[in-house]
Amino acid sequence: MTHTVDRSELEELVYETCARLDEKDFKGFLGLCDPAFAYKVSAYAPEVQREMTWLDRDRAEIEEFFGMLPKHNTDRNPLSRHAQVTKVRLDAARQRAEVTSTVQIFRTQLDGGATELFAVGRYLDTISLQADAPRLLARHVKLDTRDLGWGTHLPL
């Protein structure tokens, strides 16, 4: 069934994915994703003039990735993702939408509560319109920030 969509629904989907990840509600996040979901994080390195792909996962891999998270030592300071949808392109023939957002990710210290900017970049999302509600089919997080300090295990 093809879903008739307006921009606000697509925006809400993007913002809801941020909220689910902020809450570390990975099951909720995957519930917003298509069965064929793919996730990628990349950044361009001007030093070597190359695109670096730091994460590249299909849905099964990302589910396993989430499943292993509790077994790792990891930074517990929460991240908060602030996205702003800037462009929506509907592709009616393919029942998809291409949605671009700018995103800033902040990290708040559990000890003391100071907040620092962790990363800036863009979400390049492909959203499927084939189901009864829009579903995230692919997310490419294209980072401007490359120095992420000690890094993180969490998707951005």
Partner: peptide, 16 residues
Amino acid sequence: AVIWGPFGRNLHEDLL
């Protein structure tokens, strides 16, 4: 990327 890089399982732990 599985173990290294800013999102890698091991490198993040090492740097922490």
